[in-house]
Amino acid sequence: MYRTHIISSLASILFGILLIAWIIPTQTPEWPGYGMPASLLPNILAWIIIVSASINLIKTIITGYGKGQPSPLSFKMFLHLLAFTAVLAAAMPLMSMFGYFIGSAIVLAACCLLCGERKPVRLVIVAAATIVVIWAALWKGLGVMLPGM
């Protein structure tokens, strides 16, 4: 946990610096000459992040905060997280490529596997039932647009 605190503090400081040095100057419009500049609030927030994260970093190093506690994230867990994120991010391209039914089936099957489902029959039933119920409720019932339809 100690290492997690150090890494999260350093990442926050780095993010704050990135905001001040690049993101805010390039992504905020010019001041129109009245009111408050659009970059003022983000700049204040960036400095708040840097100062708070620095205090956290110093506090962690001096007090050894979190030493002896196990790390909450292993490499395997991180890979699992990335897999989930990738499946969710790939859902829309899959549905627009293969249509709602096939695309959804692939996504749901992947989600079931990632959630630990290992029974093929149950996996197929769950995927098929969910897809049909969502299609009936949103598309047929409420007239909501579905991807790939």
Binding site: L88, A89, A91, M92, P93, S96, S104, V107, L108, C111, C112, L114, C115, G116, E117, R118, R122, V126, T130, I131, I134, L138, V144, M145, L146, P147
Partner: peptide, 25 residues
């Protein structure tokens, strides 16, 4: 193992339904 993928899928479709835009997902 059944509930969580279904919730994830409902979240996914709910996010899409809000704006009818894949960007929300």
């Amino acid at each position: 193992e059944v509930l969580f993928p279904v919730i994830l899928f409902i979240c996914l479709m709910g996010a899409y339904a809000m704006e009818s835009d894949p960007f929300s997902v």
